[in-house]
Amino acid sequence: MISTSGSGAKWKESYTFYLLISPWLIGLVVFTLGPILGSLGLSFYDWDLISPAKFVGLRNFREMLSVDPLFWQSLKVTLVYVVFRVPLALVTALLLALMMNQKVPGIGVFRTIYYLPSVVSGVAVSMLWIWVFNPNFGLANGLLGLIGIQGPGWFSSTGWALPTMILTSLYAVGSTAIIFLAGLKNISESLYEAAELDGASKLQRFFTITVPQLTPTILFNLIMLMISSFQTFTESLIITNGGPANATLFFNLYLYQNAFAYSRFGYASALAWVLFTLTLIFALYTFRSSRKWVYYEGGDAS
């Protein structure tokens, strides 16, 4: 006679596991997977939330590619932002992590200070930047005036608005720096000691030990920064609302305007899927290219 006690115990264990994670599974299906699939279906409709939805096939996608100039403007603004913001944030965060990795008294306080801006409300910070970069009475132009420099228009200038947006985004690199700090703590001190005995300078140790050992962490931060950059929304909405002259019309902001200002929910859903596709392409390309530059101690590339 074959005992079924073992299979019964496994079934009970599986049942308990799925029962415990059922709140998360229900939330995933109802609040994440459901809306994602719903937006995909809605992208083929014309719907203003009041009138009955009208099936239009691929018209929304054809419109954005051939008729809508603001689609291309928002795409250009977002891509420029990603191309410049991501490497600047990576370098800034790595420099902060290197400073936070020093063994000096009170370093824990400094780590907390550098991390705090990452958890402050984006709306509150945006209001602060509006004051700092006000061209008439802002702190930035006030300091420049002290040394005889006429400050630019910052957010009110078509040429300076996007660069200023990139500059202000660097305030929140504390979370990225903390991840870099964890990567630095994971590097064996024996590697630095051996390199120092061989006469390697600090700069040589940085490029031959620190950077290669940090490449998995760099890859993770690169992906996360890329995704967050494509999804930039709050700052552009609060500070400029896409202006001046659409100079800061980010893709996510244009998507929001179509949905909640113009009541074009079908078109906004189509825009959302274009944004998702672009983000996915960039992420997959980054993962694929990482095989050539990411180092793992086991010897296998990602």
Rank of each mutant, 00 (worst) to 15 (best):
11 W>K: 13
11 W>Q: 10
11 W>F: 06
11 W>I: 07
13 E>W: 07
13 E>K: 14
13 E>D: 07
13 E>C: 02
14 S>C: 10
15 Y>V: 10
15 Y>H: 06
15 Y>D: 03
15 Y>G: 10
15 Y>F: 15
16 T>Y: 12
16 T>I: 10
17 F>P: 00
17 F>W: 14
17 F>M: 07
17 F>T: 09
18 Y>P: 01
18 Y>V: 08
18 Y>I: 11
19 L>I: 06
20 L>Y: 06
20 L>C: 15
20 L>D: 08
21 I>D: 04
22 S>K: 09
22 S>D: 01
22 S>E: 06
22 S>C: 07
22 S>R: 05
22 S>G: 09
22 S>W: 10
23 P>N: 11
23 P>H: 09
24 W>L: 08
24 W>T: 12
24 W>I: 13
25 L>N: 12
25 L>V: 08
25 L>S: 14
25 L>W: 13
25 L>G: 11
26 I>H: 07
26 I>Q: 03
26 I>G: 03
27 G>C: 10
28 L>Y: 15
28 L>Q: 05
28 L>S: 11
28 L>P: 02
28 L>T: 11
29 V>E: 10
29 V>A: 15
29 V>T: 15
29 V>Q: 12
30 V>W: 04
30 V>K: 06
30 V>I: 12
31 F>G: 07
32 T>V: 14
32 T>P: 00
32 T>E: 06
33 L>R: 04
33 L>Q: 09
33 L>T: 06
34 G>Y: 03
34 G>E: 04
35 P>A: 09
35 P>E: 03
36 I>K: 06
36 I>L: 15
36 I>R: 04
36 I>P: 00
36 I>E: 02
36 I>G: 03
36 I>T: 14
37 L>D: 01
37 L>T: 02
37 L>M: 12
38 G>N: 15
38 G>E: 09
39 S>W: 00
39 S>Q: 03
39 S>D: 02
40 L>V: 11
40 L>R: 06
40 L>W: 07
40 L>Q: 01
41 G>M: 11
41 G>P: 01
42 L>G: 01
42 L>M: 13
43 S>A: 15
43 S>K: 03
43 S>E: 05
44 F>K: 08
44 F>T: 03
45 Y>M: 10
45 Y>T: 12
45 Y>C: 05
45 Y>W: 09
46 D>F: 03
46 D>K: 15
46 D>C: 00
46 D>S: 14
46 D>I: 00
46 D>G: 02
46 D>R: 14
47 W>H: 05
47 W>G: 04
47 W>V: 01
48 D>Q: 05
48 D>E: 04
48 D>P: 01
49 L>D: 08
49 L>C: 00
49 L>T: 13
50 I>H: 11
50 I>G: 03
50 I>D: 08
51 S>T: 14
51 S>L: 01
51 S>W: 01
53 A>F: 00
53 A>G: 02
54 K>D: 11
54 K>V: 09
54 K>F: 02
54 K>L: 12
55 F>R: 02
55 F>D: 01
55 F>K: 04
56 V>F: 04
56 V>T: 13
57 G>Y: 02
57 G>H: 03
57 G>N: 10
57 G>A: 09
57 G>D: 02
57 G>P: 02
57 G>T: 01
58 L>T: 07
58 L>W: 15
59 R>Y: 07
59 R>H: 08
59 R>S: 14
59 R>Q: 13
60 N>E: 09
61 F>L: 13
61 F>G: 04
62 R>S: 11
62 R>C: 00
63 E>L: 12
63 E>Y: 15
63 E>I: 07
